[in-house]
Write a protein that binds this DNA or RNA. Structure first.
Lengths: 73, 73
DNA sequence: TATTTAAGTCAAGCATGCTTTACAAAAAGA
DNA sequence: TCTTTTTGTAAAGCATGCTTGACTTAAATA
């Protein structure tokens, strides 16, 4: 899932460490998000959205509709 | 983090199993989300939002701003 | 040039999200 | 009442999210 974190961070002229501190997470987490290692949890996504005063949908791109199925009893 | 899943599901007259199938997750996952056991991943939150044609923010309530801090180097 | 800041990455470890299988209990329908 | 459907829950296991600590490299600055 792609995101606009790096751009938003640049617009605010923040380092990864600055952003991490503002969000209460580690710098490595920010780096991992920006480099696409994994997606944030929903609570963290909300914090990010609140910080940048944007909707989650404006920061994170919809995933590519995987169509995986689970057995469901 | 509270959510409106049970209400939305009721509006559509779906069982937990129906919703699970529509989302490609297990019934137990839906039950866990509705009973507040845990929050969905961001990708699953997007799928839910897409299915109900709502924004994530309209389904999931913002978490109560934890203010936890990480050491950050 | 020497130093500092910023970014990338790795490994180990713990927490959370989701799976399958299984069972119990409540609610709905015959 | 009897049967079926729906919901709740539990345990074990695997995948993902996030932590700390450490190290490397590149870029900015004294």
């Amino acid at each position: 899932m792609k995101n606009r974190l790096r751009v938003l961070r640049a617009e605010h002229d923040w380092s990864q460490a600055d952003l991490a501190q503002a969000l209460g997470v580690s710098r490595q987490t920010i780096n991992a998000l920006e480099t696409g290692k994994y997606d944030p949890s929903l609570p963290l996504a909300f914090k990010i959205a609140d910080l940048f005063e944007l909707a989650i949908e404006q920061i994170f791109e919809r995933p590519s509709a995987d169509n995986q199925s689970a057995s469901n009893d």
